[in-house]
Write a protein that binds this DNA or RNA. Structure first.
Length: 297
DNA sequence: TTCTGTGCATCCCTAGAGGC
DNA sequence: GCCTCTAGGGATGCACAGAA
């Protein structure tokens, strides 16, 4: 089974969508330059993709890659039909290699380490989309496909925006459903709430004197434990993260204000300007004065 | 005024053990 | 899985001196 990962920051753009009633034209090869998501409304649909043959039942979805050659390989006895939506994705969906690494080992199921304010968003949590899938919310999905079809037939106002919304909803249902069907045990542990609570606290009070005692009192747990939990989910220690928040604020003040280095150090909760300079250089690679020189117009 | 280097006391991090 | 405790080593915070 193939799986794809889509970043939550991906830009999706719906190109075209339609409900297709299987006819003779289905039995010649089709190609298109976009991703194509199929959902069978009346089955079976006998679908050949490159050299592989599939029998898709009503309610099943199938994701085709751009330029992937596909066609029908057998005529059904009765009526068969499916919805399809073609869309682009920037960045492209990432195919996961499940032959060398089981899907459960890809660390894309929870945000966990991607929540720090100072981190870039390049490694944002992703949606897991299977190539072929049978969602349990079949009728809800079909409704969204009907909405897509209607929007495309009667393009009014921000219809392209709404098309993208419907597509995102469909992808969300697929990936959420997949999680519920296959990864029920992978719920976030209670310690994750402690981490979130501490993260909020740090964001609100990083400019104050955050000692071990302050954090212990706030969290009602030993500092050693809180420190372990923070390291587990963020990948860094508490003090280092506080420094990053402080330096982030200092960078803003250096660029936008005329405050002296000493005043900025005090503003971000470091009494010693010398020490501030040392920390700043450690994180940014240049001392504060040099940073101001480079960024202040 | 700011930066850099050094030294030193204190604080914090972390691994491991163990109880619930 | 959650939580506490301990101990050792490393990091931090601060002071001071000298230079730019």
């Amino acid at each position: 089974m193939k799986y794809y990962a889509a970043s939550r920051l991906s830009v999706f753009d719906v190109k075209w969508t339609k409900q297709y009633h299987v006819s003779d034209s289905f039995y010649t090869y089709h190609y298109n330059p976009y991703y194509q998501l199929i959902m069978v409304s009346e089955g079976p649909v006998y679908l050949q993709v490159e050299n592989e043959r599939f029998i898709l039942e009503a309610g099943e979805t199938f994701l085709l890659n751009p330029w992937e050659r596909h066609m029908g390989w057998r005529k059904p006895e009765g009526v068969s039909a499916f919805f399809w939506v073609q869309f682009s994705s920037d960045p492209p969906l990432k195919e996961l290699d499940t032959s060398t690494k089981p899907i459960s080992e890809y660390e894309i199921l929870h945000a966990e380490k991607n929540e720090l304010r100072t981190k870039t968003t390049s490694d944002a949590d992703q949606l897991l989309i299977p190539r072929r899938f049978k969602p349990s919310q079949r009728f809800k999905m079909l409704n969204y496909f009907e909405d897509l079809d209607n929007e495309m037939k009667h393009p009014v106002g921000y219809f392209r925006f709404r098309l993208t919304q419907h597509l995102c909803k469909i992808l969300e249902i697929i990936s959420t459903d997949l999680l519920e069907q296959n990864f029920r045990t992978m719920t976030l542990p209670g310690s994750y709430n402690i981490y979130r609570q501490l993260l909020n606290f740090l964001h609100d009070f990083y400019q104050t004197d955050l000692t071990k005692e302050v954090i212990e009192n706030k969290m009602n747990r030993s500092y050693e434990y809180v420190s372990q939990v923070f390291k587990k989910y963020s990948g860094m220690n508490i003090v280092h993260y506080i420094h990053q928040l402080r330096v982030q604020r200092a960078k803003h003040l250096l660029e936008e204000s005329r405050l002296s280095i000493q005043e900025i150090a005090k503003e971000i909760g470091i009494d010693d300007a010398f020490y501030f300079s040392k920390i700043f250089k450690q994180i940014e690679g240049v001392p504060p004065s040099k940073y101001r020189e480079m960024h202040q117009s």
